[in-house]
Write a protein that binds this DNA or RNA. Structure first.
Lengths: 199, 199
DNA sequence: ACCTGAACACCGTTCAAGT
DNA sequence: ACCTGAACACCGTTCAAGT
Protein backbone atom coordinates (compact mmCIF):
# COMPACT_ATOMS: atom_id res chain seq x y z
CA UNK A 1 0.00 0.00 0.00
CA UNK A 2 1.32 3.46 -0.88
CA UNK A 3 2.68 5.62 1.94
CA UNK A 4 3.03 2.74 4.35
CA UNK A 5 6.62 2.14 5.35
CA UNK A 6 7.62 -0.90 7.44
CA UNK A 7 8.32 1.03 10.66
CA UNK A 8 5.41 3.49 10.60
CA UNK A 9 4.20 2.17 13.94
CA UNK A 10 7.61 2.53 15.58
CA UNK A 11 7.60 4.20 19.01
CA UNK A 12 7.79 7.94 18.30
CA UNK A 13 8.99 8.98 21.72
CA UNK A 14 10.31 12.32 20.43
CA UNK A 15 9.07 14.06 17.27
CA UNK A 16 11.66 12.56 14.95
CA UNK A 17 14.74 14.76 14.91
CA UNK A 18 16.68 14.92 11.69
CA UNK A 19 19.95 13.03 11.88
CA UNK A 20 22.18 16.12 11.94
CA UNK A 21 19.94 17.82 14.47
CA UNK A 22 20.05 14.81 16.74
CA UNK A 23 23.82 14.73 16.52
CA UNK A 24 24.10 18.44 17.32
CA UNK A 25 21.79 18.13 20.30
CA UNK A 26 23.93 15.40 21.76
CA UNK A 27 27.16 17.25 21.14
CA UNK A 28 25.75 20.34 22.87
CA UNK A 29 24.65 18.33 25.88
CA UNK A 30 27.96 16.54 26.18
CA UNK A 31 29.92 19.79 26.00
CA UNK A 32 27.48 21.62 28.29
CA UNK A 33 28.05 18.99 30.95
CA UNK A 34 31.77 19.76 30.92
CA UNK A 35 31.43 23.54 30.76
CA UNK A 36 28.78 23.75 33.48
CA UNK A 37 31.00 21.53 35.59
CA UNK A 38 33.75 24.10 35.11
CA UNK A 39 31.85 27.37 35.25
CA UNK A 40 28.62 26.57 37.09
CA UNK A 41 25.03 27.11 35.98
CA UNK A 42 25.85 30.64 34.78
CA UNK A 43 28.31 29.27 32.25
CA UNK A 44 28.72 31.13 28.96
CA UNK A 45 26.30 29.75 26.37
CA UNK A 46 28.56 31.16 23.67
CA UNK A 47 31.40 29.13 25.08
CA UNK A 48 29.29 25.98 25.01
CA UNK A 49 28.27 26.52 21.37
CA UNK A 50 31.86 27.30 20.44
CA UNK A 51 33.30 24.20 22.07
CA UNK A 52 30.52 22.05 20.60
CA UNK A 53 31.51 23.44 17.19
CA UNK A 54 27.95 24.53 16.61
CA UNK A 55 26.42 27.87 15.60
CA UNK A 56 25.08 29.93 18.47
CA UNK A 57 21.62 29.85 16.90
CA UNK A 58 21.70 26.06 16.90
CA UNK A 59 22.12 25.99 20.64
CA UNK A 60 19.16 28.34 21.01
CA UNK A 61 17.05 26.24 18.64
CA UNK A 62 17.55 23.13 20.77
CA UNK A 63 17.46 24.89 24.12
CA UNK A 64 15.54 28.17 23.97
CA UNK A 65 16.54 29.15 27.50
CA UNK A 66 19.40 28.41 29.87
CA UNK A 67 16.91 26.60 32.11
CA UNK A 68 15.88 24.32 29.25
CA UNK A 69 19.51 23.28 28.79
CA UNK A 70 19.92 22.77 32.52
CA UNK A 71 16.77 20.70 32.63
CA UNK A 72 18.06 18.39 29.91
CA UNK A 73 21.36 18.17 31.75
CA UNK A 74 19.61 17.18 34.97
CA UNK A 75 16.90 14.95 33.53
CA UNK A 76 18.71 11.77 34.59
CA UNK A 77 19.47 13.10 38.06
CA UNK A 78 15.85 14.10 38.61
CA UNK A 79 14.55 10.77 37.44
CA UNK A 80 16.96 8.96 39.70
CA UNK A 81 15.94 11.10 42.67
CA UNK A 82 12.26 10.55 41.94
CA UNK A 83 12.80 6.79 41.85
CA UNK A 84 14.72 7.00 45.10
CA UNK A 85 11.88 8.93 46.73
CA UNK A 86 9.43 6.32 45.47
CA UNK A 87 11.44 3.48 46.96
CA UNK A 88 12.00 5.29 50.24
CA UNK A 89 8.27 6.00 50.44
CA UNK A 90 7.74 2.34 51.16
CA UNK A 91 10.49 2.06 53.71
CA UNK A 92 9.55 1.03 57.22
CA UNK A 93 11.63 3.74 58.84
CA UNK A 94 9.91 7.00 57.81
CA UNK A 95 12.34 9.38 59.51
CA UNK A 96 15.45 7.63 58.25
CA UNK A 97 13.88 7.55 54.78
CA UNK A 98 13.36 11.32 54.86
CA UNK A 99 16.91 11.95 56.01
CA UNK A 100 18.29 9.67 53.30
CA UNK A 101 16.30 11.44 50.58
CA UNK A 102 17.28 14.90 51.76
CA UNK A 103 20.89 13.79 51.86
CA UNK A 104 20.61 12.76 48.22
CA UNK A 105 18.93 16.06 47.40
CA UNK A 106 21.82 17.98 48.95
CA UNK A 107 24.27 15.88 46.98
CA UNK A 108 22.33 16.49 43.78
CA UNK A 109 22.12 20.24 44.28
CA UNK A 110 25.87 20.22 44.85
CA UNK A 111 26.51 18.71 41.42
CA UNK A 112 27.11 22.11 39.82
CA UNK A 113 27.98 25.48 41.28
CA UNK A 114 24.87 27.67 41.22
CA UNK A 115 22.49 24.75 40.93
CA UNK A 116 20.96 25.28 44.35
CA UNK A 117 20.15 28.85 43.31
CA UNK A 118 18.69 27.71 40.00
CA UNK A 119 16.49 25.21 41.78
CA UNK A 120 15.28 27.65 44.42
CA UNK A 121 14.45 30.23 41.76
CA UNK A 122 12.00 27.81 40.15
CA UNK A 123 9.66 28.20 43.12
CA UNK A 124 8.85 31.74 42.00
CA UNK A 125 9.28 31.16 38.27
CA UNK A 126 6.49 28.92 37.06
CA UNK A 127 7.59 29.22 33.44
CA UNK A 128 10.98 27.64 34.04
CA UNK A 129 11.41 24.17 32.55
CA UNK A 130 12.95 23.27 35.89
CA UNK A 131 9.78 24.21 37.71
CA UNK A 132 8.04 20.88 37.16
CA UNK A 133 11.05 18.81 38.15
CA UNK A 134 11.62 20.83 41.28
CA UNK A 135 7.95 20.82 42.21
CA UNK A 136 8.14 17.04 41.93
CA UNK A 137 11.11 17.02 44.30
CA UNK A 138 9.24 19.25 46.71
CA UNK A 139 6.20 17.02 46.71
CA UNK A 140 8.34 13.91 47.05
CA UNK A 141 9.97 15.56 50.04
CA UNK A 142 6.49 16.48 51.24
CA UNK A 143 5.30 12.89 51.10
CA UNK A 144 8.29 11.53 52.97
CA UNK A 145 7.90 14.39 55.42
CA UNK A 146 4.27 13.54 56.16
CA UNK A 147 5.21 10.00 57.00
CA UNK A 148 7.93 11.19 59.35
CA UNK A 149 5.44 13.58 60.91
CA UNK A 150 2.87 10.82 61.31
CA UNK A 151 5.55 8.81 63.08
CA UNK A 152 6.03 11.72 65.47
CA UNK A 153 9.61 12.40 64.41
CA UNK A 154 9.09 15.82 62.79
CA UNK A 155 7.12 18.86 63.99
CA UNK A 156 3.78 19.43 62.36
CA UNK A 157 4.37 23.07 61.43
CA UNK A 158 6.82 22.28 58.62
CA UNK A 159 5.96 21.63 55.00
CA UNK A 160 7.76 20.20 51.97
CA UNK A 161 8.72 23.62 50.67
CA UNK A 162 10.33 24.49 54.02
CA UNK A 163 12.60 21.45 53.96
CA UNK A 164 13.32 21.88 50.26
CA UNK A 165 14.38 25.46 50.95
CA UNK A 166 16.51 24.53 53.96
CA UNK A 167 18.25 21.72 52.12
CA UNK A 168 18.99 23.93 49.12
CA UNK A 169 20.25 26.62 51.47
CA UNK A 170 22.74 24.11 52.86
CA UNK A 171 23.99 23.33 49.36
CA UNK A 172 24.26 27.06 48.72
CA UNK A 173 26.53 27.53 51.73
CA UNK A 174 29.10 25.19 50.21
CA UNK A 175 28.60 26.91 46.86
CA UNK A 176 29.53 30.30 48.27
CA UNK A 177 32.19 29.26 50.75
CA UNK A 178 33.89 26.04 49.62
CA UNK A 179 35.91 26.05 52.83
CA UNK A 180 32.71 25.19 54.69
CA UNK A 181 32.23 21.99 52.69
CA UNK A 182 33.56 19.97 55.62
CA UNK A 183 30.79 21.36 57.84
CA UNK A 184 27.98 20.42 55.47
CA UNK A 185 26.98 17.13 57.05
CA UNK A 186 27.21 18.66 60.48
CA UNK A 187 25.02 21.62 59.54
CA UNK A 188 22.56 19.21 57.93
CA UNK A 189 22.34 17.25 61.18
CA UNK A 190 21.80 20.48 63.14
CA UNK A 191 18.99 21.62 60.86
CA UNK A 192 17.34 18.21 60.99
CA UNK A 193 17.40 18.22 64.79
CA UNK A 194 15.68 21.60 64.60
CA UNK A 195 12.82 19.91 62.81
CA UNK A 196 12.27 17.45 65.66
CA UNK A 197 9.11 17.97 67.72
CA UNK A 198 9.63 19.97 70.92
CA UNK A 199 10.24 17.57 73.77
CA UNK B 1 56.65 80.46 59.97
CA UNK B 2 56.52 79.43 56.32
CA UNK B 3 54.38 76.46 55.33
CA UNK B 4 52.38 76.50 58.50
CA UNK B 5 48.71 77.12 57.82
CA UNK B 6 46.23 77.75 60.66
CA UNK B 7 44.56 74.39 60.51
CA UNK B 8 47.60 72.18 59.99
CA UNK B 9 46.70 70.18 63.09
CA UNK B 10 43.10 69.68 62.01
CA UNK B 11 41.81 66.07 62.22
CA UNK B 12 42.81 64.48 58.94
CA UNK B 13 40.39 61.60 59.10
CA UNK B 14 40.58 60.98 55.35
CA UNK B 15 43.45 62.03 53.07
CA UNK B 16 41.93 65.35 52.00
CA UNK B 17 39.80 64.83 48.93
CA UNK B 18 39.58 67.69 46.46
CA UNK B 19 36.22 69.45 46.52
CA UNK B 20 34.97 68.09 43.19
CA UNK B 21 36.20 64.59 44.02
CA UNK B 22 34.40 64.67 47.34
CA UNK B 23 31.21 65.77 45.63
CA UNK B 24 31.46 63.01 43.03
CA UNK B 25 32.07 60.38 45.64
CA UNK B 26 28.93 61.36 47.47
CA UNK B 27 26.85 61.49 44.32
CA UNK B 28 28.01 58.01 43.37
CA UNK B 29 27.17 56.63 46.78
CA UNK B 30 23.74 58.23 46.82
CA UNK B 31 22.89 56.91 43.37
CA UNK B 32 24.40 53.49 44.11
CA UNK B 33 22.11 53.13 47.09
CA UNK B 34 19.09 53.58 44.83
CA UNK B 35 20.34 51.38 42.00
CA UNK B 36 21.46 48.53 44.27
CA UNK B 37 18.09 48.75 45.96
CA UNK B 38 16.53 48.25 42.53
CA UNK B 39 18.88 45.73 40.93
CA UNK B 40 20.64 44.04 43.83
CA UNK B 41 24.37 43.74 44.52
CA UNK B 42 25.01 42.74 40.90
CA UNK B 43 23.71 46.08 39.67
CA UNK B 44 25.27 47.59 36.55
CA UNK B 45 28.19 49.83 37.50
CA UNK B 46 27.77 51.61 34.18
CA UNK B 47 24.21 52.41 35.11
CA UNK B 48 25.32 53.83 38.44
CA UNK B 49 27.94 56.06 36.81
CA UNK B 50 25.45 57.15 34.18
CA UNK B 51 22.75 58.07 36.67
CA UNK B 52 25.28 59.83 38.90
CA UNK B 53 26.30 61.86 35.82
CA UNK B 54 29.88 60.84 36.28
CA UNK B 55 32.42 59.27 33.94
CA UNK B 56 32.80 55.53 34.27
CA UNK B 57 36.46 55.96 35.17
CA UNK B 58 35.50 58.24 38.03
CA UNK B 59 33.47 55.50 39.63
CA UNK B 60 36.43 53.12 39.30
CA UNK B 61 38.79 55.70 40.77
CA UNK B 62 36.71 56.03 43.91
CA UNK B 63 35.69 52.39 44.15
CA UNK B 64 38.17 50.10 42.40
CA UNK B 65 35.96 47.03 42.83
CA UNK B 66 32.27 46.33 43.23
CA UNK B 67 32.99 45.10 46.75
CA UNK B 68 34.62 48.43 47.63
CA UNK B 69 31.45 50.24 46.60
CA UNK B 70 29.32 47.79 48.53
CA UNK B 71 31.50 48.18 51.57
CA UNK B 72 31.05 51.96 51.53
CA UNK B 73 27.33 51.46 51.07
CA UNK B 74 27.17 49.16 54.09
CA UNK B 75 29.63 50.99 56.36
CA UNK B 76 26.84 52.48 58.47
CA UNK B 77 24.94 49.21 58.69
CA UNK B 78 28.06 47.34 59.79
CA UNK B 79 28.92 49.94 62.40
CA UNK B 80 25.40 49.86 63.75
CA UNK B 81 25.46 46.05 63.93
CA UNK B 82 28.83 46.09 65.66
CA UNK B 83 27.53 48.54 68.27
CA UNK B 84 24.47 46.36 68.76
CA UNK B 85 26.66 43.30 69.29
CA UNK B 86 28.72 45.25 71.80
CA UNK B 87 25.63 46.28 73.76
CA UNK B 88 24.12 42.81 73.64
CA UNK B 89 27.41 41.36 74.85
CA UNK B 90 26.69 42.87 78.23
CA UNK B 91 23.11 41.72 78.38
CA UNK B 92 22.12 39.41 81.22
CA UNK B 93 20.24 37.04 78.95
CA UNK B 94 22.93 35.48 76.75
CA UNK B 95 20.64 33.32 74.64
CA UNK B 96 18.11 36.07 73.98
CA UNK B 97 21.00 38.42 73.16
CA UNK B 98 22.30 35.99 70.53
CA UNK B 99 18.86 35.55 68.99
CA UNK B 100 18.35 39.32 68.87
CA UNK B 101 21.68 39.87 67.14
CA UNK B 102 21.14 37.13 64.59
CA UNK B 103 17.70 38.57 63.89
CA UNK B 104 19.35 41.91 63.12
CA UNK B 105 21.92 40.16 60.96
CA UNK B 106 19.18 38.50 58.91
CA UNK B 107 17.46 41.84 58.53
CA UNK B 108 20.71 43.47 57.44
CA UNK B 109 21.54 40.79 54.90
CA UNK B 110 18.07 41.24 53.50
CA UNK B 111 18.70 44.93 52.78
CA UNK B 112 19.68 44.25 49.18
CA UNK B 113 19.06 41.33 46.91
CA UNK B 114 22.29 39.36 46.56
CA UNK B 115 23.80 40.75 49.73
CA UNK B 116 23.72 37.44 51.58
CA UNK B 117 25.71 35.93 48.73
CA UNK B 118 28.20 38.80 48.73
CA UNK B 119 28.71 38.41 52.47
CA UNK B 120 29.16 34.65 52.33
CA UNK B 121 31.66 34.95 49.49
CA UNK B 122 33.94 37.06 51.72
CA UNK B 123 34.71 34.01 53.82
CA UNK B 124 36.74 32.55 50.97
CA UNK B 125 37.91 35.87 49.48
CA UNK B 126 40.34 37.47 51.91
CA UNK B 127 41.07 40.32 49.52
CA UNK B 128 37.51 41.61 49.48
CA UNK B 129 36.99 44.93 51.27
CA UNK B 130 33.95 43.28 52.80
CA UNK B 131 36.09 40.56 54.33
CA UNK B 132 37.06 42.58 57.41
CA UNK B 133 33.53 43.76 58.12
CA UNK B 134 32.11 40.29 57.74
CA UNK B 135 34.85 38.74 59.82
CA UNK B 136 33.94 41.25 62.52
CA UNK B 137 30.30 40.15 62.28
CA UNK B 138 31.35 36.53 62.53
CA UNK B 139 33.47 37.15 65.59
CA UNK B 140 30.73 39.24 67.19
CA UNK B 141 28.37 36.36 66.58
CA UNK B 142 31.06 34.07 67.97
CA UNK B 143 31.30 36.05 71.18
CA UNK B 144 27.56 36.10 71.78
CA UNK B 145 27.49 32.43 70.87
CA UNK B 146 30.08 31.51 73.48
CA UNK B 147 28.07 33.22 76.19
CA UNK B 148 24.94 31.34 75.14
CA UNK B 149 26.96 28.12 75.12
CA UNK B 150 28.35 28.87 78.57
CA UNK B 151 24.77 29.33 79.72
CA UNK B 152 23.98 25.88 78.37
CA UNK B 153 21.52 27.12 75.79
CA UNK B 154 23.50 26.21 72.65
CA UNK B 155 25.37 23.00 71.75
CA UNK B 156 29.12 23.12 72.06
CA UNK B 157 29.86 21.81 68.55
CA UNK B 158 28.84 25.01 66.77
CA UNK B 159 31.04 27.97 65.97
CA UNK B 160 30.50 31.55 64.88
CA UNK B 161 31.06 30.74 61.23
CA UNK B 162 28.37 28.05 61.39
CA UNK B 163 25.73 30.42 62.69
CA UNK B 164 26.86 33.18 60.32
CA UNK B 165 26.47 30.75 57.42
CA UNK B 166 23.08 29.50 58.56
CA UNK B 167 21.74 32.99 59.10
CA UNK B 168 22.97 34.13 55.70
CA UNK B 169 21.45 31.03 54.15
CA UNK B 170 18.08 32.05 55.60
CA UNK B 171 18.40 35.49 54.04
CA UNK B 172 19.33 33.82 50.77
CA UNK B 173 16.13 31.76 50.77
CA UNK B 174 14.05 34.92 50.72
CA UNK B 175 16.39 36.34 48.08
CA UNK B 176 15.74 33.46 45.72
CA UNK B 177 12.09 32.81 46.47
CA UNK B 178 10.38 36.01 47.65
CA UNK B 179 7.21 34.02 48.22
CA UNK B 180 8.92 32.34 51.16
CA UNK B 181 9.47 35.67 52.93
CA UNK B 182 6.55 34.95 55.22
CA UNK B 183 8.27 31.77 56.43
CA UNK B 184 11.53 33.49 57.30
CA UNK B 185 10.91 34.00 61.00
CA UNK B 186 9.54 30.51 61.30
CA UNK B 187 12.55 28.96 59.59
CA UNK B 188 14.83 31.05 61.78
CA UNK B 189 13.11 29.67 64.87
CA UNK B 190 13.45 26.12 63.55
CA UNK B 191 17.16 26.54 62.89
CA UNK B 192 17.72 28.09 66.30
CA UNK B 193 15.98 25.18 68.00
CA UNK B 194 18.34 22.90 66.10
CA UNK B 195 21.23 24.63 67.85
CA UNK B 196 19.85 23.75 71.28
CA UNK B 197 21.80 21.15 73.25
CA UNK B 198 20.40 17.61 72.97
CA UNK B 199 18.03 16.99 75.85
C1' DA C 1 13.89 21.42 8.83
C1' DC C 2 17.76 22.85 10.30
C1' DC C 3 22.15 25.53 10.59
C1' DT C 4 24.90 29.76 10.60
C1' DG C 5 26.91 33.92 12.10
C1' DA C 6 26.33 38.84 11.81
C1' DA C 7 23.88 42.42 14.30
C1' DC C 8 22.19 44.65 18.40
C1' DA C 9 22.30 46.10 22.94
C1' DC C 10 24.31 45.41 26.73
C1' DC C 11 28.38 44.26 30.27
C1' DG C 12 33.27 45.10 33.26
C1' DT C 13 37.76 47.02 33.05
C1' DT C 14 41.60 49.81 31.50
C1' DC C 15 43.94 53.81 30.11
C1' DA C 16 45.52 57.79 27.09
C1' DA C 17 44.13 62.32 26.84
C1' DG C 18 42.50 66.18 28.86
C1' DT C 19 41.65 70.02 32.85
C1' DA D 1 44.59 65.34 41.31
C1' DC D 2 41.09 64.29 39.22
C1' DC D 3 37.77 63.51 35.35
C1' DT D 4 36.38 61.61 30.88
C1' DG D 5 34.96 58.47 27.46
C1' DA D 6 36.75 55.63 23.81
C1' DA D 7 38.62 51.02 23.29
C1' DC D 8 38.78 46.14 24.23
C1' DA D 9 37.01 41.81 25.16
C1' DC D 10 33.41 39.78 26.53
C1' DC D 11 28.05 38.68 27.23
C1' DG D 12 22.69 37.03 25.81
C1' DT D 13 19.34 37.11 22.25
C1' DT D 14 17.36 37.56 17.69
C1' DC D 15 16.89 36.78 12.92
C1' DA D 16 17.79 37.12 7.77
C1' DA D 17 20.14 34.28 4.77
C1' DG D 18 21.55 30.06 3.46
C1' DT D 19 21.38 24.52 2.71
Amino acid sequence: MPGESPDTAAPKTSPELRADARRNRERILAVARVVVEEQGTEASLRDIARRAQVGLGTLYRHFPTREALLEALLRQNFDRLAARAQALGESEAPYEALVAFLGDLIGGAGAYRGLAASMMATISDEESPLHASCAAMRSAAGHLLERAQAAGRIRADVDGTDVFALVNALSWITDQAPSLASRRDHLFALVMSGLAPPS
